[in-house]
Each structure stands twice: as C-alpha cells, then as structure tokens.
Design a protein around this nucleic acid. Structure first.
Length: 498
RNA sequence: GCGAAAGUAGCUCAGCUGGUAGAGCGCGACCUUGCCAAGGUCGAGGUCGCGGGUUCGAACCCCGUCUUUCGCUCCA
C-alpha cells in the first residue's frame, strides 16, 4: 500500500464536501452572496439524515432510560448565566499575534509582564503608570492604542525576539445582541455558547415537576453559537452548531461510577448508528477544564484525523453551585435514600456527569463513513461506483419505488405500493430514465432499498427488492415489504447492542 | 490570525504570457427502449467569485476584497 498521503486524505474530504453539495446534504450558507464563513445549511437529504440521528439519540436517552427526560430551553438566557458558567470572564481577551513566530499572546498579559519587569528593576512607578494607561485604553476599546503601547514599550515576542506584531483584536467567543429597542449595556444578551446552562437553570423545575429522584438526567438538543476565530474542516467547526447533550445528576461521590458507565454507553451508541469500532477511540483529557474533575472525548477518525465527536465530562457541582451563589436560589436536592448508618443522605448540590455530542460532527462522521468509492471488474468491464453506505435507520430515504417502465400499468401499481408505505417510511417514487440510472441515483444518496415493479408484479403481487450494498435483488410479496423495511430501520435493531 | 494554493455552465475541467467563452458528464422535453449511469432529436443554462486599475480591447496583467482548501495557530 502506498503512503497515506496528505493529498489523498485531503481529496477524500474534498470529494465528500462536493458529494454533500451535489446531492443535497450540505450547502454553504448564503452561497449566492459568496457564502458566510463557517456557516452551512442542510439540504433536502441532509436534514433527513440529521433528523434521523437526532431522533435516535433522543430516543436512546429518553425512551431507553426511565430516569432521563428531555427539555427544550431558549437560546437566549439571562446574562448572569454566562457569568456563573465562567464564559464571560474566561473569554473576553485582547489578543495579538507575532508575525515571525506566529505565536498568539494576550495583549494585556504582555503589558503586565513589562510592568512587572519595571517593578523588579525598581521602577514601580513606571510599571504602575503603564498599567493605568493600558487600563484606560482597554476600557475605551482602543485596541490600536494598545498595540502602539506594546510597540512603544518595545515588547518583543519571547520566541522570535521581534516586534513584528499584528493588530490587537478582541477575542469574543460569544455572539451578543440587544434585547429591546434601546441598546445599552444592560440590554446586551448573548446567544448561548453551549446548551448545558439551559439544563442547569431548569434543574429544580424538572426535578420538582417531574418528581425526579437522583440519579436522573435531563436531555436536550439545540443550537449553540461560538464566534470561532478560525473555521476548518467543513461542518466540523461551525459558528452555529447543534448539540445533543444530557446532564446526569448524581449523589456526590458516585460521579466516577456514572462517568465510566456513560462513557461506555455512549461509545456503544456511535457503533450502533454504524460507525466502525476501529475508527472510534477514547481520548482522555490530561488538562481539565475549570469545571471538570474527569473528561474524555469520543473521537472518530475523520479524513483529517481522529477528532472529537462527543465529550463526557464529570462537571462536579461547579455549575449548580455558581448558579446558587449568583441567583441566591438554593440548587439543592434532598436525598431520602439511607446511607450506611440508616440516615438519609439529606441535602446536597448534586454532581453532574455530562454527555455532549456535536450533532453536526456526528453527521459528518456518519457521512464520511458512508462515503464509498468502489471499482469493480477488469479492463473493459471496469466500472467505478460511488454510494453512501448508511445504516438503514439513518438513511434519508428508506426505499425507492421504481416501475420498470412507465407504461403497461406499472406506474399505477408502483403508486399503490408508495401509498402503502409512505405513512411509515420516507419513500421516493421515480419513473424517469432507465432503471439502472435510477438505481445509481439512489446509491448516491444512500437509499438502502430499491423496489422494482415489473410485469410479473401485475400477475402475482411480488416485487424485486434490491440491496444497496450488494446490488443483489430478491423477489418478495408486496405484503411483506412493510415488515422487511421496518425490521431494517427499526430502533430496536439499532439498539439491540446497547 | 499567519503562510500557501484555488475560484470559468449544476459537476469535473479546457481556454495559446490580452482580441468580448468551450468540452464531457449532468439537467429539461419528446421519440426509441427496458434490470444496474442505453441511443437519438431538440433545448435551457455563464456579466469567467466580487470591486477597482492598466489597455483601443481583460477570463487572462496589476491592486484590493470575499469564499474555499491545505499547513501552522486557536478551540474554556
């Protein structure tokens, strides 16, 4: 085998992007206006695939676990939410790049280091003045002035030793907008940078109204927004994206057991929707986020390498505790279960184990995995074939109903079959062009079954059903079609390994 | 954000170091056909990413800009 070649992997992703656009899975946003960086739209087939994935996740959480329920919180949240979560403090920094070392620094930290240096050299007065000047510039939002200050102070990059700096830019992770007609500071609100906080602020609402007993989980699917500096790899990192996440509330001290359990359960989910075991792996975080005491990613091997599709975090009581402090509302749970001494565990702020899937990343993983190019035959007979090898349960279209010819009553018979199946499955009817061409078109969008209606159908009510992956056909009675397709796409079959 | 490359029909691409656009496939209608991208006829579709500049004349040269891809960087 030849070397795995950057150009090959690059072209694979390019092929997939091209295929996704040509066959109605993913379009660049606002394409007629040249697109919008790191924003994409889902097309007619993409939305079906994504909905199927979301539906499977939702059911795997809420239907298969009687202690997990769902919510759908608003995208807008009270500004203090982001104070409590740490987003406002951690992600509002002026950044500057050194062009020679290509290293990025926080502009304020460079100046603070310089001020510190003056202090150490005994000129504390000068350092103090520098910090004051910086503070005035930052408060005024005068980023160009900050840059001038860095240059006039002759601050060099520790790596390259040069002062070849870029502009200072404010690094704002969160998108902000105004509530109400008057725009002032008080009316600024943010588009949520993660969906988790919508669950945390509703923790007690759900617990009380649903009479939930710990341990229990709250699941949510929804959009989140991050103002990414750099977007890469198609829909892998977008400014507007969708998360599927579940926060599982547990008694403190039991969190690691649940963490291990969800870790394994979540890995099985990804296998169940068709991702192969050898392309999935755990990546354990050495460096933990401010809110976590354990964290692992489930990574999928994309054409551009192993990358995260889901994170499982033990978030401790970080979020609920901060919300309690800031809101002055107790976020406690009274645990009536008895401990070893026969007394109830009593009041506590629960610990949280989070499972958080990037819906768009799962979509991309499933699409990359399904994309198959095959070459069959030799010499003159040599033919290439491209198809999407989706698990039938996630395929956008479950079956295509194709009359062999558009005469002799075959279209009418085929329409009857369509009417028989359309209430249970997303089916597609087509009579244009040759049957071979229609088969190929279905292969390209990953339809698992093609039902051909031929002259024999009119005499004995049987059809041929063609398998996408093998292209083999089998003759079956029309009366068996629903059970056949139903079995292939059923959630039970997907989750029999969960 | 830095660096590099690319952008011409729905797709893949040609286009002579400047003379106002082409192919294949695809798409639509009709005819012929009928089991794995079939043949024929006719047809639709492009201010060559966008904006300036140079020139008698720009898809082509120059500047800027947008978007995409790749390598770094970033990713609580």
């Amino acid at each position: 085998m030849a070397e795995p070649k950057l150009s090959d992997t690059a072209s694979t992703l390019k092929d997939i992007i091209g295929h996704a656009k040509e066959y109605g899975f993913v379009f660049p946003s606002s394409e007629i206006y040249d697109g919008l960086q790191a924003v994409y739209d889902y097309g007619q087939n993409g939305v079906e695939l994504k909905n199927n994935l979301k539906s499977l996740w939702w059911k795997a959480m809420t239907m298969l676990n009687d202690n997990v329920v769902g919510i759908d919180a608003a995208i807008f949240m009270h500004p203090l939410t982001w104070k409590a979560s740490g987003h406002i403090d951690s992600f509002n920094d002026p950044m500057i790049d050194n062009r020679d070392s290509q290293k990025r620094y926080r502009a304020d930290q460079l100046l603070e280091a310089k001020a510190e240096m003056y202090a150490v050299e005994g000129d504390a007065e000068r350092g103090h003045a520098l910090l004051q000047q910086m503070g005035r510039l930052l408060d005024a939002g005068a980023l160009a002035g900050v840059r001038e200050l860095i240059i006039s102070e002759n601050i060099a990059c520790p790596l390259s030793g040069t002062t070849n700096w870029t502009e200072v830019r404010q690094f704002n992770l969160m998108f902000s907008t105004q509530v109400g007609a008057v725009s002032d500071d008080a009316s600024t609100i943010y588009l949520r940078p993660e969906t988790a906080q919508g669950i945390f602020v509703n923790f007690l609402n759900v617990q009380k109204s649903g009479r939930m007993k710990i341990p229990f989980g709250i699941a949510q699917i929804g959009k989140a927004f991050r103002n990414e500096i750099v977007a890469r790899n198609f829909i892998f990192r977008m400014r507007e994206f969708e998360q599927m996440e579940m926060q599982f509330f547990v008694r403190p001290g039991t969190e690691m057991d649940w963490y291990e359990r969800w870790k394994e359960t979540r890995l099985r989910f990804h296998k169940a929707v068709g991702l192969p075991a050898e392309k999935l792996k755990f990546h354990i975080h050495d460096k933990l986020a401010h809110y976590a005491n354990a964290a692992v990613d489930i990574e999928y091997e994309f054409p551009f390498g192993f990358k995260e599709i889901e994170g499982i975090h033990s978030r401790t009581d970080f979020d609920l505790k901060n919300h309690q402090e800031l809101s002055k509302k107790k976020q406690q749970y009274f645990d009536n279960d008895l401990d070893g001494t026969g007394k109830p565990f009593g009041n506590y702020i629960p610990y949280v184990v989070e499972t958080s899937v990037g819906a768009d990343r799962l979509f991309l993983a499933v699409l990359c995995n399904a994309y198959t190019e095959e070459t069959n035959g030799e010499g003159e007979e040599r033919k290439s074939r491209t198809y999407l090898k989706f698990h039938p349960a996630v395929a956008p279209v479950k079956a295509a109903i194709l009359p062999l010819v558009k005469k002799d009553g075959l279209p009418e018979k085929a329409r009857e079959i369509q009417n028989l199946l359309k209430f249970d499955f997303n089916v597609f009817y087509e009579e244009r062009d040759s049957i071979g061409k229609r088969y190929t078109r279905q292969d390209l969008i990953g339809t698992p079954f093609c039902i051909a209606v031929d002259h024999q159908t009119l005499t004995d009510n049987t059809v041929t059903i063609r398998d996408r992956d093998t292209t083999l056909q089998e003759r079956v009675p029309i009366s068996e079609l629903r059970a056949r397709i139903g079995h292939a796409v059923s959630m039970e079959r997907v989750f029999e390994q969960l």
